[in-house]
Design a protein around this nucleic acid. Structure first.
Lengths: 175, 175
DNA sequence: GGCAACATGTAACTTGTTACATGATTCC
DNA sequence: GGAATCATGTAACAAGTTACATGTTGCC
């Protein structure tokens, strides 16, 4: 139910192919919602049937042709209606935290390594967010179109910084 | 694959019935992993077949009988093996952040209300975490058994505080 | 020659959600 | 009388994952 809307949100930015969308869900919007390519291709079919997206084949030479989807007026209306529905609670699933709950029953060395790995991931993600901020939002006030994206980015930065602090403190205490 | 291990983690704390587990996934461990009761009853069957849990019926007068599950030695071994496998990235899915990405295409008033609602949820969660910390971890250094839980709690506190700060700043900017 | 990126899809399977189904007790 | 809590489960459906399947171009 929500994947379809997340896709429509992506398409408000620009028309995209299934492949583009898959990459988008791996980077940009991937911080808030995940999707794999089989899911996306399956969902695009449904969105087309409902008339929320229109598609057109883009002929490329050399590379395989792309099927590019655009959001329709009906799609925009559906998006606005959805935005009035109450939001669900944020869903978090984290292996690492689950393991931490049973600290006496897991492999300590493995856990330490896993936390190190996680620390690295969060540091890299933070760097990437800083880079996006500098490139995209460096010049003063963002336009109203970009305000939401900037605020999302700020949450992401804060989130990663929190994790980094936490990982470092945990690694100290685990010895 | 991971739900079964999350259940085993719960059972290292104490033996529980399906009903207990469902409540546990709604509160305590629910911050890191979610599960509904049909999922739990279905999974318990599999865990029993694999010999990772043993069950016994507890006769109650008045209330319906409880089927209480305990983790077996094989279950503990499976848990330890699992703990050596690499952790996946944390999975986040958040409706609200998705909507924020398309801020120009959603209902502003609804969004403002949804953020207010979210702020309230995070404040309540934070209060609950403080309460747990005070009740369970007030007296100095925690035992090694509880260290992981305390660290998880600290992450939760930090996480909720971050959200509260962010919501307040966003509400100001949305006017 | 092999690997990565581009590009689209299907099939089989596992997870997760929602609604249905039952039935006792306690509190208002 | 009605709602909430305790307690277990099933059925039908929706969502998500993994592996398979194909074929090109460009780089090392």
């Amino acid at each position: 139910m929500a994947l379809s809307h997340a896709i429509l949100v992506c398409l408000t930015e620009r028309p995209m192919s299934g492949y583009d969308l898959a990459k988008f869900f791996d980077t940009s919007i991937g911080f808030f919602w995940r999707a794999t390519h089989p899911q996306i291709y399956r969902e695009m079919k449904k969105l087309g049937e409902k008339g929320y997206v229109t598609s057109s084949e883009e002929i490329q030479s050399g590379k395989p042709n792309r099927i590019v989807y655009s959001i329709s007026q009906a799609g925009r209306r559906a998006l606005k209606e959805w935005s009035r529905e109450p939001v669900g609670p944020p869903l978090i699933k984290d292996d690492l935290l689950v393991r931490l709950q049973a600290i006496e029953h897991v492999d300590r060395d493995a856990l330490r390594q896993q936390i190190c790995g996680r620390l690295k991931v969060h540091k890299e993600q933070l760097e990437q967010y800083f880079h996006i901020r500098d490139v995209r939002f460096s010049d003063g006030e963002p336009g109203p179109e970009d305000l939401g994206k900037l605020m999302g980015l700020e949450l992401g930065i804060q989130y990663e910084q929190g994790w980094i602090t936490w990982c470092e403190s945990v690694l100290k205490r685990l010895g």
